[in-house]
């Protein structure tokens, strides 16, 4: 698989470490009253869809950036690659 890195261009997926569903960007608020339930969900339950999946890839053998890759789990086709930083910011997770 080739991942089209937004900064570095097309890179071999073997340079990356897969980090799972990009929902992991949305760490629950530890101060919420139902924080425990939310963290169990966050830590252990997954959508695991057959079809488009937004997932985190870490460019460990490259520039060390985290990417959010949208990839079809039934064909391995990649339809979009973004910097995780930008995605997190657009969700108000980071400044």
């Amino acid at each position: 698989m080739i991942i089209n890195h937004p900064i570095l261009g097309p890179r071999d997926s073997a340079e990356f470490t897969y980090m799972g569903d990009s929902a992991l960007l949305d760490r629950p608020d530890w101060k919420a009253t139902d924080a425990l339930a939310q963290f169990i969900d966050y830590g252990y339950l997954r959508d695991n869809p057959a079809g488009p999946h937004q997932e985190l890839w870490y460019h460990e053998q490259g520039d060390r950036s985290f990417l959010v890759v949208t990839r079809d789990t039934t064909t391995h086709e990649i339809s979009s690659v973004k910097l995780a930083r930008d995605v997190a910011r657009s969700r108000g997770r980071s400044t």
Partner: peptide, 16 residues
Amino acid sequence: SGRLMAKANMRLPIES
């Protein structure tokens, strides 16, 4: 499993 149990609206501690 993930695909099938989603039809019962269940999320599992599983990745395929």
